[in-house]
């Protein structure tokens, strides 16, 4: 799915066209208009979420796929995964990857946003268009391209690292296999995901910067404040709401990364699983489908993400985005 949840939604002009004052008699109009949407979301989102919860307490395998009723197993699925080292390793990978990727994405995105703000208008538009290309690349091709860039035959990254002086990066890069260990795979995954997600941060930060009153920063400069200081004293506090939303969204997106890892590492490589790949592989990976086990892992993932989502919703409500 395209990662485009609204960091900052388009704001309606409230004076001229806010929602009408409540009418005396309730009218069916708005309910009829949202009815189809409710139906779609209920069947495709809410009901499946309930199903995951139910199935996480069941055994759902090939027999059930053939039509037999599901078998209740209580909390067996959960006790199995909680005592499985693979679960804890996948959880560790998920969290560590999110911490590293989110930090790098926010850092790089903010720096590029600040840069775009200071460039001339034409140059800024040109660089922004280039940055958009990274954002627009579909996850599946991004993963394949990075696999190729970091490949050991003909890969341009190894060639480049080998050209650099050995003092800096060490030697022997030409045959380096970037997908030999989980740590290496996750390094490439991080580069790939950060490359794809920093543009969203950069563009949002730029949008925020443009909305700031120029006089404040001007005054700070006249008073001799350094760029570092005026960022932390003026820009950052004013853009705090944007940074909060960007932080939460980045955590959510990086927590459930799937397609890129699936391409770079795959279902056979259990050592490099994260939670979403682990859940998918339990459910669909083996000869025997274990949809109940997969659901139990998916439940854990969903609960973790819902906790982060709660923070996001609170920020959006406070900013008046739902009014």
């Amino acid at each position: 799915m395209l990662d485009t949840a609204p960091a900052v939604g388009a704001a309606p002009d409230r004076r001229s066209s806010g929602p009408a004052r409540p009418r005396r008699r309730p009218r069916p109009g708005p309910y009829l208009l949202i009815a189809p949407t409710l139906l779609v979301i209920a069947t495709l989102m809410f009901w499946p979420m309930v199903q995951i919860a139910i199935m996480s307490f069941q055994k759902v395998g090939n027999r059930q796929l053939a039509g037999e009723p599901a078998e209740q197993v209580g909390t067996e699925n959960f006790s199995t995964i909680l005592s499985d080292d693979l679960f804890w390793q996948s959880l560790r990978h998920t969290v560590l990857f999110a911490v590293v990727a989110v930090s790098l994405t926010l850092l790089l995105g903010t720096l590029v946003g600040l840069l775009l703000h200071r460039l001339g208008r034409r140059m800024s538009a040109f660089v922004a268009a280039g940055v958009m290309v990274a954002w627009a690349t579909p996850p599946i091709t991004a993963a394949i391209i990075f696999y190729w860039l970091f490949g050991s035959t003909g890969g341009v990254v190894n060639w480049f690292l080998d050209l650099l002086p050995d003092v800096l990066v060490g030697g022997d890069w030409i045959d380096h296999n970037w997908f030999a260990t989980p740590l290496r795979t996750y390094t490439v995954l991080t580069v790939c995901v950060v490359w794809q997600s920093f543009p969203f941060v950069a563009v949002s930060v730029l949008a925020g910067l443009k909305s700031l009153p120029g006089e404040l920063l001007e005054a700070a400069r006249v008073d001799g404040a350094s760029a570092w200081r005026s960022f932390w004293q003026i820009t950052f506090p004013l853009l705090r709401p944007i940074f909060l939303v960007l932080l939460v969204l980045s955590i959510i997106w990086d927590f459930k990364v799937f397609t890129q890892l699936f391409i770079m590492s795959g279902m056979a490589n259990r050592d490099a699983f994260n939670l979403s790949l682990y859940a998918y592989s339990e459910a669909f990976g083996g000869m025997n489908a274990k949809l109940g086990m997969g659901s139990a892992i998916a439940t854990v993932l969903t609960l973790l993400l819902l906790a982060v989502t709660a923070v996001y919703v609170r920020i959006m409500v406070r900013q008046g985005e739902t009014s």
Partner: peptide
């Protein structure tokens, strides 16, 4: 609408496949 956009589709694939 906000919450639904954050639901991990990677998790929903299991029940939707069954349905």
């Amino acid at each position: 609408l906000l919450v639904v956009q954050m639901v991990p589709l990677e998790a929903l694939v299991i029940p939707l496949f069954l349905d």
